[in-house]
Design a binder for these strands. Structure first.
Lengths: 333, 333
DNA sequence: GTGAAAGCGCTAACAA
DNA sequence: TTGTTAGCGCTTTCAC
């Protein structure tokens, strides 16, 4: 690769000063339209490309942001990264990504690396909605948490509205005429569990459908757990005619149990999931109606928050709650 | 955030020259052990962190690499990114990511952005194994393709061994004693389709099980397609006792058809998938035996290839084929 | 073994 | 409107 064309090369070949070129390129209004035109033309001709590092050094701002996450190996990763990526991109900024094995306590090294690149801010995201401990390495660098909260409460968070999501699920089931509505919840230690349940409960109450605690069972978070829990639910009589599964994997298991029992979805039992893990919800038969976890949106908002914070607009120090859109498919409507 | 500590700060507070500090920090053997010790100690005390941009400017090498992909929104993204990430990380390098809507022709802008950051190389990855057209913007910058090939054949590729994978699937089914083994294949225009089928065919032949073309049906790539295809297969008599589905989504649909027919897995029919989309293969009941698409591995290899190319070791210009490990679960063993 | 000094490519005063 | 001139923080010869 030949040595990249520099600004000086441009200036020299045009017979103008470097600052003239700089101004022309950066749209400062200190050059004549004519000069600007010539500069732009020559730049294109020579294939000039600004050197981001040099620019950063001189301007003291890199246009780089960091994302530290354990999420990289989950299906949510894509949306999160895409959302943040696009938001930064729109402002001409770039994203550096680092993974962590221990999201509860993001790797020091990951953060150090970002600091060495003088990122304008760091986004920390987790797969599960949880509380984490952020290392103190970041000397006051803008930082925002996505899908998690800081144990010390020093940084703003972007969180999904679990309660409203649960409410949506409950309403949907109730408004489809179901009378005995059950819920298969996540383990209580997951932050999402209580919110989803609480929302679900108020929805039933608001809809005038009895909320029966004995119809709310707690299991794990996987398909097998959902299968087992649904089996227990179906053993009751009368059996429920609607089940809200606190995540799509649980719903996947519930489908099996319902089928085993010779019942149909949504005919006998309507099912609503949560998370909208497309690969499950979209491909289950019948396709699963579910509440989506807005990772793309959260990524976008986190990125914007960060840029605002860096710009000194400080931004809301408090939590931003993002609503979880309902995705209506066939298992309940 | 206070102004970061610079090398000059360090040197001044230590009463030595900047170069002494630089040498000490970079493990050059031109400083006394004692000086090095003092420098390191002071650096830690002051929280000195090298400025990556400045270093890049002076040393003409940024330690940054780019990944351009359409894959970011798929479940494979995580593994790919993680694999590349880790490989770069291990060498103290960092990864910049850019998404593309049009993987067939990666965005010029994405590539431009990476060039501005003076990346040492670019990895281009796609969700589906395909042939793409790489824009000419990269003036001889090291570049490697993951899960795709360059239409102009200018860049090395890292590809999964589809044929060996198909062979594995066929052998597995044959060695479990199945005699009428069917295959539900992907649309012929997908690169993966023919490789997987060919491998499957030779496996059957090698195992002495008849390869019956009428048992090889082609559909789409989704669960619904798999369902329909399996239905057709099951309508034949005698029905197959083993089905190799060219991806896990097809297998997901096949499960439904098999169940509808009142047959059991793996009792009546053994099923083997491909891709190892964990969320499907791991949670289907019974769990799906499948051939995994080694994205993490491919990401790692692509990254290493890139670093070698940059180091001038040139590296194999030809394609690197990565084997697809079999993941044995319950649907066939 | 150590220091001085010249850049790397760019921005941003300031002067003309 | 244009050009001159300092740096930004670091690496890397080259003298000492």
């Amino acid at each position: 690769m030949a040595r990249p064309v520099t600004m000086s090369d441009l200036a020299r070949s045009l017979g103008v000063s470097r600052s003239a070129v700089s101004f022309a390129l950066n749209n400062e209004n200190q050059v004549s339209a004519e000069t600007r035109r010539r500069v732009l033309e020559k730049a294109a001709e020579l294939g000039y490309r600004p050197n981001a590092g040099a620019r950063a050094l001189a301007s003291q701002t890199t246009g780089l942001y960091g994302l530290v996450t354990d999420i990289v190996t989950t299906p949510f990763a894509g949306d999160l990264i895409a959302g943040a990526q696009e938001a930064f991109w729109r402002q001409g900024k770039s994203l550096i990504i680092a993974g962590t094995k221990t999201p509860d306590r993001p790797d020091r090294r990951s953060l150090e690396m970002m600091l060495e690149h003088r990122v304008g801010g760091v986004l920390v995201a987790t797969t599960w909605n949880r509380t984490i401990k952020v290392p103190d390495v970041l000397d006051g660098i803008p930082m925002a948490l996505v899908h998690c909260t800081d144990v010390d409460g020093r940084y703003p968070s972007v969180l999904p509205d679990e309660v409203a999501g649960g409410y949506e699920a409950g309403s949907l089931l109730a408004s489809s005429g179901r009378k005995r509505i059950a819920m298969i919840n996540l383990p209580a230690d997951l932050t999402a569990a209580e919110g989803r349940r609480a929302g679900f409960e108020s929805a039933l109450k608001d809809a005038g459908v009895p909320y029966d605690p004995s119809l709310v069972v707690t299991g794990g978070a996987d398909a097998t757990d959902g299968y087992l829990a649904a089996k227990r639910l179906l053993a009751q009589s009368p059996a429920p005619d609607g089940i809200f599964c606190a995540n799509d994997r649980l719903a996947m298991g519930a489908y099996d149990a319902i089928r085993d029992a010779g019942l149909s979805i949504p005919g006998d039992i309507a099912v609503v999931g949560f998370d909208n893990q497309e690969i499950i919800s979209n491909f289950l038969r019948p396709a699963l109606t579910t509440i989506s976890l807005p990772f793309r949106e959260m990524g976008r908002i986190g990125a914007e928050l960060l840029m605002k914070m860096e710009a000194g607009e400080e931004g809301p120090r408090e939590t931003v709650v993002v609503s979880c859109p309902t995705v209506i498919r066939e298992s309940a409507r």
